[in-house]
Simulated scan of single mutants.
Amino acid sequence: MRPSRGRCSVCRATHVLLAVSCLVRRADGAEVIGTALVAKATGVGHRRLAARLGRPASTVRGWLRAFACNADRVGALFAGLLVELDPLAGPIAPRGSGVADAVEVIGVVAAAARRRLGVLGAVSPWQLVAAVTGGRLLFPSGPD
């Protein structure tokens, strides 16, 4: 996939325009990476995941490590979004690791968005993640 570029009318600079199904500097889509993160949250190792997804083990290990570094920030970002989408949402039970906790809150937010927005919220949980994080889910500085 080759992303489009757009020119900013204010600064006149060009910017890469990513689809909501993409993450910054990743060749694989958000759905594939999200599948790996969900599996990791359940305890599957990177080699088994790589074989299942047909990707190099080093690539999958890189996704998992990058997400592990950002898991606390992602979890906090999505917990705040959950309160905005569903102020009456109860507490989310801890899952035992930062990765599993972040994946859990992402799923809860995706369900809340679908309830609240209906058809407008009809994007996959990982497209929602890509949109909310500006494609920076696995970026070294974390999501905005």
Rank of each mutant, 00 (worst) to 15 (best):
residue 66 A to I: 03
residue 85 L to K: 01
residue 57 A to G: 14
residue 140 P to I: 04
residue 76 A to Y: 05
residue 92 I to L: 06
residue 33 I to V: 06
residue 10 V to C: 15
residue 19 A to R: 02
residue 62 G to I: 14
residue 60 V to Y: 01
residue 126 W to S: 04
residue 102 A to G: 12
residue 18 L to D: 09
residue 122 A to Y: 13
residue 108 V to D: 06
residue 30 A to G: 10
residue 37 L to R: 01
residue 119 V to P: 06
residue 100 A to P: 06
residue 94 P to M: 12
residue 71 A to H: 10
residue 26 R to K: 11
residue 109 V to E: 10
residue 87 P to W: 15
residue 90 G to F: 07
residue 97 S to K: 01
residue 88 L to A: 14
residue 35 T to R: 02
residue 17 L to K: 02
residue 138 L to G: 08
residue 17 L to A: 09
residue 49 L to T: 04
residue 2 R to Y: 01
residue 53 L to S: 00
residue 48 R to P: 02
residue 22 C to M: 00
residue 47 R to S: 00
residue 85 L to C: 07
residue 142 G to H: 05
residue 18 L to N: 03
residue 11 C to V: 14
residue 49 L to C: 05
residue 136 R to K: 12
residue 28 D to Q: 02
residue 95 R to E: 10
residue 27 A to P: 03
residue 102 A to F: 12
residue 64 L to H: 02
residue 1 M to H: 10
residue 14 T to G: 02
residue 22 C to P: 01
residue 122 A to T: 13
residue 31 E to Y: 09
residue 65 R to Y: 15
residue 95 R to K: 15
residue 117 L to S: 13
residue 5 R to E: 11
residue 131 A to M: 11
residue 63 W to M: 09
residue 3 P to Q: 11
residue 5 R to H: 13
residue 58 S to W: 06
residue 77 L to C: 12
residue 53 L to P: 03
residue 98 G to I: 08
residue 6 G to N: 05
residue 36 A to P: 12
residue 113 A to W: 09
residue 120 L to R: 15
residue 125 P to V: 04
residue 41 A to M: 04
residue 37 L to P: 00
residue 5 R to T: 15
residue 9 S to E: 03
residue 95 R to Y: 08
residue 29 G to K: 04
residue 110 A to P: 09
residue 10 V to L: 13
residue 107 G to K: 04
residue 141 S to T: 11
residue 17 L to E: 02
residue 59 T to P: 01
residue 101 D to G: 11
residue 144 D to A: 11
residue 30 A to M: 08
residue 61 R to C: 06
residue 133 T to A: 07
residue 39 A to M: 03
residue 20 V to R: 09
residue 98 G to H: 00
residue 20 V to I: 13
residue 55 R to K: 05
residue 130 A to R: 02
residue 72 D to L: 07
residue 110 A to V: 14
residue 135 G to M: 04
residue 47 R to D: 02
residue 101 D to K: 01
residue 85 L to M: 14
residue 93 A to L: 13
residue 119 V to D: 13
residue 31 E to H: 06
residue 106 I to W: 00
residue 45 G to E: 10
residue 144 D to W: 12
residue 61 R to F: 09
residue 22 C to G: 00
residue 61 R to E: 14
residue 45 G to I: 02
residue 46 H to N: 10
residue 92 I to N: 04
residue 64 L to Q: 09
residue 109 V to P: 06
residue 44 V to M: 01
residue 55 R to G: 00
residue 126 W to M: 05
residue 108 V to P: 07
residue 120 L to I: 05
residue 68 A to I: 11
residue 74 V to A: 10
residue 90 G to T: 09
residue 16 V to H: 03
residue 65 R to N: 15
residue 69 C to E: 12
residue 10 V to Y: 08
residue 25 R to A: 13
residue 110 A to C: 09
residue 143 P to D: 10
residue 118 G to L: 11
residue 6 G to M: 07
residue 21 S to W: 08
residue 29 G to L: 00
residue 94 P to V: 00
residue 32 V to E: 01
residue 82 L to M: 13
residue 77 L to M: 15
residue 129 V to F: 14
residue 20 V to L: 09
residue 93 A to R: 14
residue 138 L to Y: 08
residue 8 C to K: 08
residue 35 T to D: 04
residue 131 A to C: 10
residue 122 A to I: 12
residue 114 R to E: 08
residue 20 V to D: 03
residue 128 L to A: 08
residue 60 V to Q: 06
residue 96 G to L: 12
